[in-house]
């Protein structure tokens, strides 16, 4: 079972996770830029973070045979903080980079006017840089947040087929499916979705344009939940090809819209990067 986790925050995970992910079949990940649990107070903090997503984390992932790409944006949780708004002006520089396969995570947290402006501006940046957009739906007031998100996307110049809307669940899947966007589902140990509920949604709404992710980060989460979904799909009678479509081909097709997906990156570039001493660099 080959797995592409289209949404995971590896910055917060350990090398044990990388090893366990590889053993579970994960060969590629996309790390969306998001908040870090604690609010940032300076634009420069974002730039260091973006640098890590573009340099250090892909290098770390490659040690474990996993291709790492990222999405770059001013995230919804911090888009309302005036201290962070200068980041918007610096984004074009980062959106030009090879490892960036989408603008994201963008979207709503509290549905404020500041978030409206940041969302619209960043959808336009996706158009300008020929990138798809990865859109987070709010944890609170999710259904209303989805409706408003879809309205803003429709008003933008970005085709809905170039938009992935994430963190969907039973209450939002129908509206998202009807819109024609790509649909993302985050599988968490306790909250969001779980493997069996996910399988039920795949039965009722199909496997086309559906992505399953762990959204694992610094909170209670598990990088192996996509594997659990694959196993639950097989147990429920889905074929291996169905599993491959959801866990590999769909994310490859969506992020492939960027033209920048390089799945050979999982292979270490040279013997230089192999060996325990590299992994323990700085020991």
């Amino acid at each position: 079972m080959r797995i592409f986790d289209p949404h995971i925050h590896m910055t917060s995970r350990t090398t044990d996770d990388y090893r366990a992910m590889y053993d579970a079949g994960v060969r590629a990940v996309v790390e969306p830029s998001f908040w870090l649990g604690q609010p940032r107070t300076h634009p420069a903090s974002f730039y260091d973070y973006f640098d890590a997503l573009l340099g250090w984390e892909p290098f770390r992932a490659a040690q474990y045979g996993i291709a790492h790409h990222c999405t770059i944006a001013l995230n919804p949780k911090e888009a309302g903080d005036p201290r962070c708004l200068p980041v918007l002006e610096e984004l074009p520089r980062y959106l030009a980079k090879d490892g960036v396969v989408a603008v994201g995570e963008i979207g709503y947290d509290s549905m404020t006017p500041a978030e409206d402006r940041a969302l619209a501006a960043q959808l336009q940046m996706a158009v300008d840089h020929e990138l798809p957009a990865m859109v987070h739906t709010p944890h609170r007031d999710k259904a209303a947040g989805l409706t408003r998100t879809l309205d803003v996307v429709r008003e933008s110049d970005l085709p809905i087929e170039h938009v992935l809307i994430d963190h969907l669940n039973e209450t939002t899947v129908a509206a998202a499916t009807d819109s024609g966007c790509w649909r993302g589902f985050s599988i968490y140990p306790d909250t969001k979705m779980d493997p069996d509920r996910m399988v039920a949604l795949l039965r009722s709404h199909g496997t086309e344009c559906v992505l399953v992710n762990s959204a694992a980060d610094w909170g209670n989460s598990d990088p192996l939940t996509p594997r659990r979904v694959g196993e639950a799909m097989l147990a429920a009678g889905f074929t291996e090809d169905d599993v491959d479509l959801v866990l590999w081909r769909n994310p490859v097709e969506f992020y492939g819209l960027s033209g920048r997906l390089d799945l050979d990156a999982a292979e270490p570039a040279s013997p230089t990067h192999e060996g325990n001493s590299v992994l323990r660099g700085g020991e």
């Binding site: 730039y47 640098d51 573009l54 340099g55 892909p58 290098f59 520089r93 980062y94 980079k97 090879d98 490892g99």
Partner: peptide, 9 residues
């Protein structure tokens, strides 16, 4: 350099 990814650096 500082704003570059590894290849750019």
């Amino acid at each position: 350099y500082r704003r570059g990814n590894a290849a750019e650096r």
